[in-house]
Design a protein around this nucleic acid. Structure first.
Lengths: 231, 231
DNA sequence: ATCCTAATTTAAACGCGCTCAAATTCTACT
DNA sequence: AGTAGAATTTGAGCGCGTTTAAATTAGGAT
């Protein structure tokens, strides 16, 4: 039983759940501009490095990734396009699960991951329509358009800004449910207006102030996940 | 990558998408009280009879079906329970897709089929809650409760009734999208009040009258799919 | 009772994604 | 430049669901 009953782009080369998962992960890992290493990919997919190595070779044969042996992998334009479609579906699903079905923002990633490779284009379109073509998922990640283009935004890392900066939280860049839950409890989610009050030296805590005057103190690791739009 | 990230009942014996699909189909085929034959099962799953035969043997080893060689298969209590859960999810999904997402009733089966094995219990519960614990899918099929029990209803086959009977359509027993579309165009869907006007002899057409006085003439094959509650 | 045909099962093999163990290649340090 | 240690790839093999082709069985017609 072939597992993936999807359309168009997919069956060009016999793409299935596993392939989509790899492409998705490689896309994320290469967003910093660097090739993704076999070991990194293996860790994310939850597989032995040797297993990932074999799979990467297959993806390369199908022209979905560009592979330099011992040097890591990058997506080809075709691979990137497929990855972007999966990511679009994932983030639309997260939005749908949150807005329509009322799941908490730290719960949506798990469900979306399970569903992203089995829904089809009609389902994708219906969600987008119901949600008014959102450009961000609940965590603030950008939702690629159907043609693979990404919306242009002004997000900057909170910690790239000088103390005193005021802005609106736009993205909390993690899928970790515990962290998300904690962020939520602190009121730190997209839309929240904050002022950067203090950055303690030597990797120390970061102090923020919310609109209502509440003071929020975060460890450096968490603060690094926040992106804002300065205003 | 193991494909089925579900819970409880499933991983008792290593149940996955393929197994769920088989159990679902065997449940449907055995509803008439007769064992399901290998060829029937193979046809529904979309697989060679030999393939189905092998798979059935495996299901029997796992005590999910009771198999008499050359005589057909029946679900064990355990197999039936798993099948009922999949069917519950399938029909809840159909209801969700129809009521919440606005898909037409002839479109929902396809989507539900793709999703039924990947959603988890939390998702199932959320749908049931949003829909107010419905007991029927959009076509009128019964939705098993979480404990596997089926609601008790008074559905009878339309054609088991004498001419002149008045009743409410409760179930249109097909998943065929074209037929469903046609039924819908005739206004024949659950809830519609109808009167059985005439049954032409020798397998001829069946004449109905809707509440608004409209006359509907159906071929015998389609009429046999309709179940009503007499009133 | 026997035979024919259709249904079913078995046997051998395949594709895919995976693991473990061994071989290879890269990289950084001396 | 040489080499140790880490990363990566290769090779052998497995599990699962599948297919094709061959063997077996069931059950009605004669």
């Amino acid at each position: 039983m072939p597992s993936n009953p999807t359309e168009s782009l997919n069956d060009v080369v016999g793409v299935n759940d596993a392939v989509l998962h790899y492409l998705d992960i490689i896309y994320r890992l290469t967003q910093n501009g660097m090739p993704a290493t076999t070991t990194e990919i293996a860790a994310r997919v939850g597989v032995t490095p040797s297993g990932a190595s074999v799979m990467l070779k297959r993806l390369a044969e199908r022209s979905l990734v560009q592979l330099k042996p011992y040097r890591g992998a990058v997506l080809t334009p075709q691979g990137r396009q497929i990855a972007l479609r999966t990511i679009r579906r994932h983030r639309l699903l997260e939005m749908f699960l949150h807005q329509v079905m009322g799941f908490a923002w730290h719960e949506v990633d798990e469900h979306a991951h399970a569903l992203e490779t089995v829904i089809n284009e009609q389902f994708e379109d219906r969600m987008a329509e119901m949600l008014g073509n959102p450009i961000r998922c609940p965590h603030g990640h950008l939702i690629p358009a159907k043609d693979g283009t990404l919306p242009v935004v002004n997000d900057v890392p909170l910690l790239s800004q000088p103390v005193g900066t005021r802005g609106i939280v736009r993205c909390v860049d993690t899928d970790n449910p515990e962290w998300l839950k904690y962020f939520g409890e602190q009121g730190l989610m997209p839309g929240q207006r904050i002022t950067l009050k203090e950055i303690a030296p030597y990797g120390g805590p970061v102090t923020l102030e919310a609109t209502d005057g509440t003071t929020i103190i975060l460890g450096r690791a968490l603060a690094e996940l926040i992106y804002i739009e300065v205003c």
